[in-house]
Design a binder for these strands. Structure first.
Length: 100
DNA sequence: CTATTGACGACAT
DNA sequence: CATGTCGCCAATA
């Protein structure tokens, strides 16, 4: 998959996110070293070399919306629910409480 | 090197 | 609260 350093960093950070919690693209970008590169982060995840190694579904938008997902936001929502995250109408409930 | 694009963010309307 | 516009960064053509 020839991932770039930036993408690798993002993936690695994402792996650290505990199950049942979520993280925002911007926060991930910030940890990766570029606080405004939320889009670039999304792009990295979209390429999705993750599979079972990186929980892409735990990445959401800054306002608590799910954002996108390679397999569709429906799937993302379902996975989050499985981990104990309550999602309502495409938005995360108590997002602030479960966000890392 | 420049142009286009995309799983975003903040602000204006 | 919903939608639209501009700005952001990195990857790719």
């Amino acid at each position: 998959m020839a991932l770039t350093d930036f993408e690798k960093k993002v993936l690695k950070l994402l792996k650290k996110v505990p199950r049942g919690k979520v993280i925002t693209y911007s926060k991930l970008a910030k940890m990766a070293g570029s606080p405004r590169a939320a889009r670039a982060v999304g792009n990295a995840l979209h390429k999705n070399p993750d599979a079972p190694v990186v929980p892409c579904h735990r990445v959401v938008k800054s306002d608590g919306a799910l954002g996108g997902y390679a397999g569709g936001w429906r799937r993302k929502t379902k996975l989050l629910r499985e981990e104990g995250v309550v999602v309502k109408n495409g938005k995360i409930v108590d997002f602030k409480k479960i966000a890392v």
